[in-house]
Design a protein around this nucleic acid. Sequence first.
DNA 1: GTCTATATCAGGATAGAC
DNA 2: GTCTATCCTGATATAGAC
Lengths: 211, 211
Amino acid sequence: MKIRIPFKKQQFDAREEAIIDAVNRLLSEKGYDLMTMDDVADAVGIAKGSLYKHFSSKDKLAAAALIRLLNATMAELETLPDTMPEIEKIRHILTWSLKLRLEGGVPHLPSTSLTLQRSLMLNLEYITLALKMHKRFHAMVAKAREQGALTPLVPDDVLVYTLYSRACDPTVDFLLRDKRMSHEQIVTAMVHATLGGFLSEQARTAAQAAA
Amino acid sequence: MKIRIPFKKQQFDAREEAIIDAVNRLLSEKGYDLMTMDDVADAVGIAKGSLYKHFSSKDKLAAAALIRLLNATMAELETLPDTMPEIEKIRHILTWSLKLRLEGGVPHLPSTSLTLQRSLMLNLEYITLALKMHKRFHAMVAKAREQGALTPLVPDDVLVYTLYSRACDPTVDFLLRDKRMSHEQIVTAMVHATLGGFLSEQARTAAQAAA
DNA sequence: GTCTATATCAGGATAGAC
DNA sequence: GTCTATCCTGATATAGAC
C-alpha cells in the first residue's frame, strides 16, 4: 500500500528541514541567547511572521534542532556492530560529534544557556529522548568498564558528561581560530586528549599496540 | 613616608570590590549575556544609576572581573617554586582553577559569549594581560614537553587552550547538579581526566609511582 | 501560509533631583 | 555619589491584509 504524500506537504516539510538547518548553524555560531528570530528568518529567506507558522516560539525552534541532533546521535550508535568493543564505540561517537561540530552542524549544547535549559525541561519530547540517550551512554560506559577499558580513578558519570561536553569545548573554537591545524588534526588531537584521561593501563597498551 | 588613604576613597574601593565580587558570582551563574545590570545592582544593594558611576558599561564591568581573575591566576603562578617540574605546575594551576570555579568565584570564560569576546578585544588592559598569561602558559607547556612529560600525539596549543577551557566545562555543572560527588572528588576526577590525555608514558609511570 | 506592520516588554544607558 | 524616573534600542510575539 503506497501512500502518496501531497506536494504541498512535501514542500512544507522541506521548509521545516531548511529552518532547522539554519537554526543548527546559528546555534553553533552564536548560541541560543544571541540567536534572534530575525536571524533565523533571514537565513532561511522567509519573513519572521511565516517562521511563527512553523514554530510557535524560539524555545520550540531550538528544541526541534536539539531533538534532531539527539535522533541523529542515536541513529549513529545503531550503525555500530555489537561485536565492537565498547571503548571503541565511545571513541567513535566522540569523533563523530566533534566532526559534526566542525562542520558547523552541532548546536552548542543546552548547557550553554540557562534559559534554554529551563525551557527544555518543560519539553516532554526532548526530555524523553535525552533520557533515553543518557541511559544509552551510561550503559556503554558501564560495559566499557566491565571490559576493563577504564581507569578506576575516574567515575562513570564524568565520562558520560564529558561525551556531551567535549563537542562544545571552547578549546575547539580557539584551535579553529588559530588556523594552524586541519579539522582532521583537531579531531584526532581532541579525541586522544579526551579519552586518554579515562583509559585503564590495559586499554592504553592495547591502543598503543593497535597504532 | 606613610600615605594616608582618605576614608571616602577606602569606602569607594571597597564598594568596587563588592561589585566585582557580585559580577563574578553572576557571571559564573548566568553568563555574560543573561546577567543584567539590574541583577548586579540588586546583588550589591545599590541603585542601577549608582552602578554606572563606578563602571560606565556592562562591558567594563565584565572586563574588570576578568582582569581580576587574570591577575589572580598570574599571582598563583608566582607562588610556585622554580624547582617544581613544569607538569606539576600545570596540574597545580588546573586544580586551582577548578576549585575557584566550584566556589562560584570564576566567571565562565570569555569564550562563552561572542559579544563579550568582541568587546574584550577592544580593551587594551585586558588584551595585554591575557596575552601575558597566554605566553606564560605556552612557556610552561613548552618546558613540560622539554622535560619529557607530554605525549607527542597532542600539540602544545591543545593543552594551553584546555587549561583555559576546563574550568568552564559543562561536565562540572552536570556533576554538581547530581550531587553525587563532593567538590574535592570532582576536582580530582576532572584533573586526572584532563591531564591523563596529555601525559607521555614516562610521566604516567612517574605519576603512578608517586601515588 | 506568506507577507508587512505593530504590540509589548526587557534591558542598557542617561537625566536630574538631592 | 546615591537615588528615582525615563529614554531608546532591539527582540519576541501577534494582527491582519492578501
